[in-house]
Amino acid sequence: MTHGISTYAYFWRISARAPRPMTLTEMFTDTARLGGRVFQICDYTPIESYDAAQLADVRATARDLGLELELGTRGVRPEHLRTYLDMAAELGVTFVRSMLNTVDHRPTPDEAVALLKETVPAYAAAGVTLGLETYEQVSTDDLLTVVRGVDDEHLGVVLDPGNSVARLERPVDVVAATAPYTVNIHVKDFAFTRRDGWVGFTYAGCPLGEGLLDHDGMIAAVREARGERRVNQIVEHWLPWQDEGFEATARLEHQWTQHSINTLLRSK
């Protein structure tokens, strides 16, 4: 498995809270310096406005740094997925992550199957794999119903078991169910902590290896189910904003990313 970093590992450093948000080039450079081999441009809407020359520059920058690129978006409407397929061709991308729902579209499993059957053959013809992420808005059973319904090796699951906890699905169950269909993994750890006065819990991210994610078990399950198929591991975080402000938050975000990459390097 090849390891890399997502824009979500730079969540605060590219946000409106940053005095000067990081650019794609800066994220690429940081990823390469940290030891990442892949960069997933995920839910980064500015790239949708890039023209051919700008996309060519992005591709060249990643190539010069030795990075493979992936894309990430949301939704299953054919016109939107075709836009990302065209972008994938410009960037030399062979993997695109998506999610079933958008703000204005929540398809049923049957509707999602019908829509994806309009698009996935074009992805297959281009040699691009589309992955649908596990998350709380859609049950894992429904997600797998969609993947099985389309029945194409170029459509699979982006495994992120932490997302499904909010749906009261156990990470171990999500891993077991999706491992045979997994085409990409989002690596982030997570934990519950008691609120002040023991009034409920906060569910948030934590450094990899310090929370509830059984990373070794997850990787073993996917390897057993997928055999020699390449499945990239992409680092993300759920880092809460720090009370000390942006500099403290950005520093911790960087530390978590470095720690995650080092952990993945040791576990190869």
Rank of each mutant, 00 (worst) to 15 (best):
Val146Ser: 07
Arg194Ile: 03
Ser139Ala: 09
Tyr203Gln: 05
Gln40Arg: 10
Leu116Asn: 09
Pro107Phe: 12
Arg194Glu: 06
Arg148Tyr: 09
Gln54Val: 04
Arg266Tyr: 04
Glu48Gly: 15
Gly205Glu: 09
Thr134Gln: 06
Thr140Asp: 03
Arg251His: 13
Tyr50Lys: 02
Leu130Lys: 01
Asp189Glu: 07
Arg195Tyr: 06
Thr31Tyr: 01
Phe11Gln: 09
Ala248Val: 10
Asp216Gly: 13
Cys206Met: 10
Glu210Asn: 09
Gln242Gly: 12
Arg20Gln: 13
Ser139Met: 01
Gly131Asn: 11
Ala52Met: 02
Phe190His: 06
Thr7Val: 09
Gly72Ile: 00
Thr102Ser: 10
Asp151Leu: 07
Thr178Arg: 00
Ala176Ser: 07
Gly156Asn: 00
Trp198Met: 09
Leu85Lys: 01
Val38Gln: 01
Arg195Gly: 07
Gln258Leu: 14
Leu81Met: 13
Glu247Ser: 15
Pro109Ala: 12
Val158Met: 14
Trp198Leu: 11
Leu265His: 11
His80Trp: 14
His186Ala: 06
Gly149Thr: 11
Arg74Trp: 15
Arg37Pro: 01
Asp151Phe: 07
Ile234Leu: 12
Val183Pro: 00
Thr182Arg: 04
Ile219Asp: 12
Ser6Cys: 09
Leu213Ile: 08
Pro19His: 04
His105Asp: 14
Phe11Gly: 09
Val231Tyr: 02
Lys117Asp: 12
Ile219Ala: 15
Gly156Tyr: 01
Thr202Met: 05
Phe28His: 02
Val128Arg: 03
Ala220Asn: 14
His259Asn: 12
Val165Lys: 00
Gly162Asn: 02
Tyr84Gln: 03
Asp51Glu: 07
Ser139Glu: 03
Gly149Ala: 12
Tyr181Val: 03
Pro46Arg: 11
Asp243Thr: 14
Ser139Val: 03
Ala125Ile: 10
Thr102Cys: 09
Leu67Tyr: 05
Val96Ser: 01
Pro161Gly: 10
Asp243His: 15
Glu236Gly: 07
Thr83Glu: 13
Leu265Pro: 00
Val120Tyr: 04
Gln233Asn: 14
Leu67Asn: 01
Leu65Pro: 00
Ile41Leu: 08
Val138Asn: 02
Ser49His: 15
Gln40Thr: 07
His105Met: 11
Pro21Ile: 05
Ala32Pro: 01
Arg13Ile: 08
Gly205Pro: 07
Gly72Ser: 08
Leu85Arg: 07
Pro46Phe: 12
Ala89Leu: 15
Gly36Pro: 00
Arg148Lys: 14
Thr108Glu: 11
Leu69Pro: 00
Arg33Pro: 01
Met99His: 05
Ala191Lys: 05
Gly127Asn: 06
Asp30Asn: 12
Thr29His: 09
Arg170Leu: 08
Asn163Met: 03
Leu115Met: 13
Arg13Gly: 02
Asp160Asn: 10
Glu48Thr: 15
Arg77Lys: 14
Leu239Ala: 13
Pro78Leu: 07
Phe190Met: 05
Tyr123Ile: 11
Glu236Phe: 01
Arg251Cys: 10
Thr102Ala: 09
Gln54Glu: 15
Thr193Ala: 09
Glu68Trp: 07
Glu253Lys: 02
Glu133Ile: 13
Asp243Trp: 07
Ala16Ser: 10
Gly131Leu: 01
Arg106His: 15
Ala18Glu: 00
